[in-house]
Design a protein around this nucleic acid. Structure first.
Lengths: 241, 241
DNA sequence: GTCTATAATGGGATAGAC
DNA sequence: GTCTATCCCATTATAGAC
């Protein structure tokens, strides 16, 4: 996220100087809103909703504090705007990946692994290869998912993704009708719990292993996670091939 | 950050005679400190460090705001005091449970399950049967464990528990020398991730299942979690009996 | 040794300049 | 339609009363 891609606004309002171009400032408005969103996305994903002030966001974006109110309204509204900006693209992409996975042929074990992989892969792909904004966005989603219920500002997240999760659970139960429906829910819940914890980058594995192993290498993590979850299903009654 | 560890009872006025004040009805200092800790513990565990103000804590405790500073110093110091109050008892109890588990006889599968159970059981027991303060404390631990690295106020938590985790990992690797050490770390990391997510009570399972299943019934959860994790180990190379 | 009154700053939000 | 100057209140922390 280089900060030198454009000139920052002049901080002193006294001397604007006579410019050749008549209205150069008009072009800054759309970019201002995007920069506020980028800064909010980055900071919220690091310290959470309460840990970030609108001042922090404005400073990071290089704009006045009140511009956050002008463009997005209240702090709650800004948070919602951050989530909304990428939510549809993310949810649609995951739904497509799931739709492809359920059409695959193979043993039930293979198909189970394909559905599991169809959950974690699009998330990791966006985090690692979607650009800096996506990395922050994914971490924010994970952070929010790890919050206690009753936090008002997390409702936009729930709204966007709960239906999507139901589709994954349904696909897995259709593949394993011998499993109790509750157990399928539990298995996928466990899966989500691991996923969100990893994506929030707590650094727990790194610390506890004395730095020999790192959970920030997401590509190396995916294979282990899929192996672990696929095997975990058998512990709750998933049959073999 | 060099505050001494405070040993304060949980809303118990057992130490009223320490000062022998002529008007003990107005001098309720020991109880005041404990009530501040109780209030801080409860509120921090619900909304996190930044989501709670010293005003909130003082109001909940029924005392003046500045008393939090008098008894505990800064907000950071108060947070540390909340963690320190129960950390030793909790960590020692878990270490004892682990020590008992590793002495058990049986198949390797049984012994693996015993060690896994020796992690989750003392946590759930304290949360559900240790009293209201313990329930809040456990949730606070889980909340803190799910925070991104780089948050300064989480260091007391790490200090207390990282060594304990290493002991669990070591016990599991000793039981499964055929596993790669990194894979053991990863398996236990996955296990911790699930545990902390459940204990933070995100309500995700409840919502996504339309209320038909609930992750707040911890006793019902433990068996499923142990089954899932024990099976998960086999996915990363753990041998059978 | 405990607590009250008050300070000094940072918080989110608004009215109006351009 | 964009942005600046300003507001009022909540926040943490301290100084001093008892």
């Amino acid at each position: 996220m280089g900060g030198n891609t454009l000139k920052l606004a002049e901080t002193s309002g006294a001397e604007t100087g006579a410019k050749a171009s008549p209205k150069p400032d008009r072009r800054r408005a759309p970019e201002t809103a995007a920069r506020i969103l980028d800064a909010a996305e980055s900071l919220f994903s690091q310290r959470g909703f309460y840990g970030v002030s609108l001042r922090d966001i404005a400073t990071e974006a290089g704009v006045q504090v009140a511009l956050t109110h002008y463009h997005f309204g209240s702090k709650d509204d800004l948070f919602r705007a951050v989530i909304d900006r990428r939510a549809d693209e993310h949810a649609d992409g995951m739904a497509q990946t799931l739709a492809q996975a359920v059409t695959l042929a193979g043993s039930r074990t293979d198909r189970r692994r394909a559905i599991i992989r169809a959950f974690i892969t699009p998330i990791v792909d966006r985090s690692m290869r979607g650009g800096p904004g996506w990395k922050n966005y994914i971490r924010l989603m994970a952070l929010v998912a790890n919050l206690p219920q009753g936090e008002a500002f997390v409702s936009p997240f729930r709204q966007h993704f709960d239906d999507l999760i139901a589709a994954y659970v349904h696909a897995l139960h259709a593949l394993h009708p011998e499993m109790d429906e509750g157990d399928v829910h539990w298995c996928f819940f466990f899966f989500q719990a691991m996923t969100t914890h990893i994506l929030v980058e707590s650094g727990m594995l790194d610390r506890q292993s004395g730095g020999r192993f790192s959970s920030s290498d997401l590509d190396a993590m995916v294979d282990r996670l899929v192996d672990f979850v696929a095997a975990g299903f058998t512990g709750l009654g998933a049959g073999g091939d």
